[in-house]
């Protein structure tokens, strides 16, 4: 079989490219929803932890957050995904929902520590300046500290979301038809591994390059005021 015949067999015949298209859709959907959960929860945890670090307040919440971080960061993502799918949703088969939750909760832990490092890197004078103008602690956090922290940690966050995107490939463990699983479905019909897998790898690569480009653009925009 020459190149075009193999290409046709793997992707054109019986519309097998649809396995990849559906896979891309699911992979992106999981990544986006998980990233949204990760950002939301991660920022909340980061602010709680940073507040405790700086002021000694919110002791109980900080303890809960630390426990959460320890458990999430201390266990493999695959195991977490399997637990959500087979244990928490044991009676119903909800692969997408399980993936949203497992990856979202997982990402939150890493986002939290990234954002916390960003908050802690902001000079204490910024908080003092905000407070001395009469702004409250949370107002100063929201209008003064977080915007600066976010800008500083954007490269690290980009990294986290790239990792997240690629890590969704373990969805194969719960038979969720993501991009990686799509390549395997094609292989199982055509007995060709090279073409589908290389195609899958190329698609991941393109998405990551796009993601990097977009975040880079955002970062440059946010950094305009430093010149």
């Amino acid at each position: 079989m020459n190149f075009s015949e193999r290409f046709s067999l793997n992707f054109i015949e019986k519309s097998r490219y649809k396995y990849l298209l559906d896979g891309i859709t699911n992979t992106l959907l999981i990544t986006i929803v998980a990233a949204a959960i990760g950002i939301l929860l991660g920022f909340i945890i980061a602010v709680i932890r940073a507040t405790h670090d700086r002021t000694g307040k919110l002791k109980l919440l900080d303890l809960i957050c630390r426990l959460y971080l320890t458990v999430i960061r201390g266990t493999p993502t695959t195991v977490q995904l399997l637990i959500v799918y087979f244990v928490i949703f044991s009676s119903v088969s909800r692969p997408m929902l399980s993936a949203f939750i497992a990856f979202g909760l997982n990402s939150a832990a890493y986002v939290a520590e990234i954002v916390r490092s960003g908050i802690m890197s902001i000079d204490t004078g910024q908080m003092e300046a905000g407070r001395s103008l009469g702004l409250g602690y949370w107002q100063t956090m929201g209008y003064v500290i977080i915007p600066q922290a976010f800008k500083n940690v954007l490269p690290a966050l980009t990294n986290e979301f790239i990792v997240l995107l690629k890590e969704t490939s373990i969805c194969i463990a719960i038979s969720l038809r993501d991009l990686t699983y799509g390549t395997q479905l094609i292989s199982s019909q055509t007995y060709d591994y090279m073409f589908p897998l290389l195609a899958g790898a190329a698609i991941y690569l393109v998405i990551v390059i796009l993601l990097t480009f977009l975040f880079g653009k955002l970062e440059r925009r946010l950094r305009q005021n430093e010149r």
Partner: peptide, 18 residues
């Protein structure tokens, strides 16, 4: 504090705002 203005040695302007 709204009635007490403060000026710092290190200025502490907000760098992300004009």
């Amino acid at each position: 504090r709204q009635k007490i203005g403060m000026v710092f040695q290190q200025f502490n302007l907000f760098p992300h705002l004009t």
